[in-house]
Amino acid sequence: MSETQRVGEVIESSTTDFIAQCYELYELPPLGSLVKTGDSDGELYGIVYNATTSGVEPGRRPIARGKDEASETAIYQSNPQLLKLLRSEFEVAVVGHRREGKLCQYLPPKPARIHGFVYQCLPEEVREFSQSFDFLTILIDRQLSVPTGELIAASLRQMGKVRSDDDRGHFLVTAGKELAILLSHDFNQLKAILERIKR
C-alpha cells in the first residue's frame, strides 16, 4: 500500500459505517470516493458519504478571525494553532470487504478497527471494485445523512473518472441499467440520478 494514498485514521466504527479523521486539515477524500481500511485479516471497502470540519473540543465553536487579514490563507498563517485546534473528519458507508483475496460486495463480519489507517483506493482497485454493482443495493437501502441519490451519483461519477472516455460511457450505461432495475418502483429517483451521472 502506498503511503501517499493514506488519508486518515478510523476514530469511530460500527458494522455499517466508520468515521475517520484526516491527518491534515481539509485533506478530505471526495464525496463518493472509494476508500479502504484493514489489517492482516482483510480489508474493508467503503464509500465516503459525509465530511465535516469542526473544533477539536466539542461545544467550543471557532470564532471569526479574519477582520484584519488580507486573505483567508493569512488567517491560518498568523494563527498556526488553528491547524491543531480544528479537525477534518469523513464518514464512510461500508459497502464490501476482501477476504482471502476475494472481493465481496456485502457487509463484513467485523467492523473496522479504531486507529486503522484509511487509504484512498488506487484507480485499478476502483476499476476492480466497480465491476460489480451489488454495492448499489447497500447504498439504496441505507438511511444516511445525505440524500442517497446524491451519494450514488457521486460514487458513480468517481468510478467513471478512473476509466477511459470510451469505457466510461459503457460503464455509466451499465450502472444506469442496474439502477433502473433496483429503482423500478421509484422512477423519479432514478431520473434524478441519471441526470447527475450523464456523460
Binding site: 441499467k177 433502473a180 422512477f187 431520473k191 441519471l194 450523464k198 456523460r199
Partner: peptide, 19 residues
Amino acid sequence: ITPPDISDSFVAEVLTGTS
C-alpha cells in the same frame, strides 16, 4: 405519464430493456 426525455441518448439507452 411523464415520459423521460428520449432526446438524451444516455437516458434512452439506460431505460431500454430495463424500465
